[in-house]
């Protein structure tokens, strides 16, 4: 395997509604920013891959317009996954491994504010036996949360503590959407959204875009501050929630093992719901001295199709700031943690 490093990360400020810029302008800003920070000339980028979803935009081929934000002239080697940007990064990493290119750009974008996300995500379900029930994404997560609470004396307080810590951490993240000092007691006294989930257990709806530039060791420009991808792997599980043990995340566990997720200082976990962070920590065997989601995580900002790749960016920020040496970044896709990606990152 070739050694590959993340050179730069850029994002829009994550917010409930991006009302100043179109998708393509969001893409243009993050791509320009990420390329500039990488120290590579734009013409040196050997491959580009993006992640997004047509259903967020409410139209077919929504990603095609994003090309306009790249200045793709002369034509570029480019691909797109209908997945979170974390998988775009994976494809870009693969491309470098083939030797066909030495540098690559991965980006993602989503404007969830246009629609009603919990209902849009119903469209992700088996269209024969699940989708037609009309079940939304929060209800699906609530079924998982209940299964988790039913086990090992788990409590809603543990979940609320995740929310409190996430939003407190987000105070240090200028780009986060939800932040502040909250009290567990007060949160627990508020009404349920979908029982057993309170509002604080759920992610906000977010608009945003982000981009990373990666390079093989021999293409890292001088003066760069590379964060090395020590391992990256992703796995999927059966779709039907009733076919799995929802309290476990075997796909995360396996991906973590394959990616070599040990000796970590911090972990950025893509856990849109509080209980999912606790399931993921368990699956990855993260003990208490691993700092979790210093950025605030998906509970502080959850741009669909973007939040997974954001975890890589946030892990890099911790390493660049000297607050961590070795970090884990995780991304999830689908309902109830169906598909998971783990990336292990290390400073120079």
């Amino acid at each position: 395997m070739r050694d590959v490093a993340i050179l730069s990360f850029a994002q829009t400020p994550y917010k409930r509604r991006e009302s100043e810029r179109t998708e393509v302008q969001m893409v243009l800003s993050v791509v320009t920013d990420a390329v500039e920070k990488s120290g590579l000339p734009k013409s040196d980028i050997g491959f580009t891959c993006s992640g997004s979803s047509d259903y967020l935009a409410g139209q077919s081929f929504a990603f095609v317009g994003a090309i306009d934000g790249l200045g793709a002239w002369p034509p570029i080697a480019e691909s797109h996954v209908e997945m979170d940007g974390a998988w775009a990064l994976y494809e870009a990493w693969i491309k470098i491994q083939t030797g066909m290119c030495n540098t690559a750009l991965a980006f993602s974008f989503g404007r969830a504010s246009m629609g009603s996300l919990p209902e849009t995500l119903n469209m992700q379900l088996d269209p024969y036996t699940l989708g037609p029930l009309g079940i939304d994404s929060i209800s699906m997560a609530a079924l998982q949360a209940r299964a988790w609470l039913d086990q090992d004396n788990h409590t809603e307080r543990q979940m609320a503590e995740v929310a409190v810590r996430s939003r407190k951490n987000a105070l240090n993240n200028p780009d986060a959407q939800l932040k502040g000092d909250f009290e567990v007691e007060k949160l627990l006294s508020e009404p349920y959204l979908i029982e057993p989930l309170h509002k604080h257990d759920c992610p906000p709806i977010t608009d945003g875009a982000n981009a990373v530039v990666i390079a093989a060791a021999d293409a890292v420009p001088s003066g760069a501050n590379p964060v090395w991808i020590r391992g990256i792997d992703h796995r999927i599980e059966p779709h039907q929630p009733g076919f799995r043990d929802l309290t476990q995340s075997p796909s995360t566990k396996l991906a973590g093992e394959k990616a070599g997720a040990t000796r970590l200082d911090i972990a950025e976990l893509h856990a849109p719901f509080t209980h999912q962070e606790l399931i993921l920590r368990d699956a990855l065997g993260l003990d208490d001295d691993v700092r979790i989601n210093p950025s605030g995580g998906a509970l502080a900002a959850n741009p669909m199709m973007v939040a997974g790749l954001t975890r890589m960016g946030e892990a890099c920020r911790e390493i660049w700031a000297g607050r961590a040496k070795r970090a884990l970044a995780h991304a999830t896709s689908g309902h109830c943690l169906q598909q998971n990606l783990v990336c292990v990152l290390e400073g120079d």
């Binding site: 079924l143 998982q144 299964a147 979908i194």
Partner: peptide, 14 residues
């Protein structure tokens, strides 16, 4: 084996 209570149904709910 697990359950969730919907206090305020959405239009798509049964």
């Amino acid at each position: 084996t697990s359950w969730a209570w919907v206090h305020e149904p959405r239009a798509q709910h049964p």
